[in-house]
Design a protein around this nucleic acid. Structure first.
Lengths: 350, 350
DNA sequence: ATGATTCCCGGAAACGTTTCCGGCATTGCC
DNA sequence: GGCAATGCCGGAAACGTTTCCGGGAATCAT
């Protein structure tokens, strides 16, 4: 069998004895075509196996009907990252599909420049809109998108000024509530585990942490803030660092829940028990952490709904670009999270 | 600032006082253009910020210069540590980029038909080549791709006949070696934890398992084969099922290492210890499992290299489609894995 | 010096689709 | 019954690029 010659709109029109413009209209559900003509065309299209060519379509219309989501392949890999993007995509893709949009994920390997990677995709007009993940505190990509007026929403907040849509988890609120909770339990000396990257989340989380301490009149001690690899081994190192301190903290708050695994491990090796000898609160609820002993106290978010909301915002931005009046849709939104109490943050022993 | 009119090849050519064909040649590094003309053009392109439009390009040339990888968003999720796609993409994207190809991941939500999802992407010519993951034992998608002569490689093996490229992990070998190892340790009654889906991996893994038993003259007992959800809770259920058996097995082999977490949990609740009261061997090495106590015995694969190899195969298939003679590149390849001994598969207590 | 070859480059036709424009019916209104 | 409005549809021009074709200039061999 030879490679089948793909039937184009021209062949289909010829086969029907109609003009290609009519066929096009029928395929796009436009109103200028009568119902019975449309049916005839759609039937013939089905029968001949005609599918509109996306290249021709987007060349002419200037729209790809696709949304791109950037994803670093080396971030939060040991567990958090993948479950995050997968669970997010579940809602995102589904909701975008309802709006007639495809979702494509653009994975960026660690040996590539993340900014150039996006610029290239944007310049080549790979998608109508872009969702930028792993946003930095001041992110040049945001400036780029604004400069060239390409629709985007930032997945994560940033200090880059200007009007644009952004969606983020409430890092500040989580840190604040975690500290409050620990203080309520009687802790006074609380450590903080951040990641090593210069992401905005770290900054915001630290802000919330400090505010929590300030509320209770506890002096902030910079030596208790540790920056670690965003993986299990980072948690292990965190444990070592805590154990090596002259006067050990009685509690620690983690910005990345998978660190808890390494931390648990390190504590166990030292004969210490999480929750009894050191209170631990993680960030995002993660199946892994529920199966730790003791279960990790963390915060819950429905990532699927989060993805749906992300899709809504993207669609809204897209409409805002085409429909001139609706400029007010560029909101920065923060989703608060619910605490999931575990057994890992009891009162301190003395 | 208004939306900048994107400078096209025409504007660039006019600005240079050259023909657009010359500019096109220069942008594509073709030999029919002199070195100094090329430099002049590239400089001007840089200065004016000209980037070729991908739609126009692929419409004319029929090639998108992109490879698509399908990914179900609901598979292996919540499996904590399931870093498969991220680690794979790391090598895959990087290697494809070296070949001048983009990688795009097409996430398919659980409420969508996986086959139709692929067909749609193929019909719309979203990519030059496709990497099909989560292949079934008999996978209609493979037939579809072959029928329409669109380049693809199957990520995972299948029983669908015909010549095509496929890459898979050595499920059979791992199962065989796991059983052998347990038998060497003195185990005779060995259970098997599979996933509930009808994937080919389950079948192949079971084959290897049976073969291992057969080698030692141990009768295969179908009641010891359990099919569970591909997640931590599945492991928990597995534990319950094992504990409920009249005569308990002394060992279990898992096709999915994250099940171990739930299993450990369930055993702990029953006052039993993995590795002492029940030997456990998992499948793929996973950071999470190294931090279990006791560490899980499993098998190692370098997913990044695996991704690089996948890219090579894809490129090879692509060349095989254009260069007529090279049809012999359609190989089915299986990667063997190295065992990573943990403490979870000791001798049985009696 | 002449013819053949090679090297560059310009002109123009595609690729498959959407969309503007215009025109023929048909309908509605007085 | 005349005239405007409306509904449907055909023709053709775009969208931005690649590539075929052809031709002028330069190089080379004779």
């Amino acid at each position: 069998m030879k490679k089948p010659t793909n039937v184009g709109i021209r062949e289909l029109a010829a086969h029907l004895g109609m003009a290609i413009s009519t066929v096009s209209r029928a395929m796009n559900d436009r109103s200028e075509v009568s119902a019975k003509t449309r049916k005839k065309i759609l039937d013939a299209a089905e029968q001949l196996g005609y599918r509109p060519n996306q290249s021709g379509r987007s060349l002419r219309s200037g729209s790809t009907k696709a949304i791109a989501l950037t994803m670093r392949t080396d971030i939060g890999r040991s567990t958090a990252g993948e479950t995050f993007f997968m669970a997010l995509s579940e809602g995102l893709q589904s909701a975008l599909a309802d709006a007639g949009l495809d979702l494509i994920i653009l994975p960026c390997a660690s040996d590539q420049d993340e900014n150039q990677f996006l610029y290239r995709a944007v310049d080549r007009k790979l998608a109508d809109g872009f969702i930028i993940s792993n946003v930095q505190r001041f992110d040049p990509r945001i400036d780029y998108m604004k400069k060239w007026h390409v629709p985007f929403v930032a997945l994560g907040s940033s200090e880059t000024p200007g009007d644009y849509a952004a969606l983020d988890l409430d890092f500040a609120g989580v840190a604040l509530r975690a500290v409050r909770r620990l203080i309520d339990h009687g802790h006074r000396r609380i450590a903080l585990g951040l990641t090593a990257q210069e992401t905005n989340n770290n900054y915001v989380f630290l802000e919330g942490f400090r505010r929590g301490l300030g509320e209770a009149g506890i002096e902030f001690d910079d030596a208790l803030v540790l920056r670690l690899h965003d993986r299990i081994s980072g948690g292990y190192e965190l444990g070592s660092a805590l154990l090596a301190m002259d006067v050990r903290p009685t509690a620690v708050v983690l910005i990345q829940e998978t660190m808890a695994m390494g931390l648990y491990q390190r504590l166990g090796e030292a004969g210490l028990q999480p929750g009894r000898d050191l209170a631990v609160i993680g960030f995002r609820e993660n199946p892994v952490c529920r199966y730790l002993t003791p279960p990790l106290t963390s915060f819950r978010i429905d990532l699927k709904q989060y993805g749906v909301r992300l899709a809504e915002m993207m669609v809204s931005v897209l409409e805002g670009m085409t429909i001139p009046e609706a400029q007010s849709t560029l909101t920065r939104e923060v989703w608060s999270m619910d605490i999931v109490p575990g057994q890992s943050d009891a009162e301190p022993v003395r």
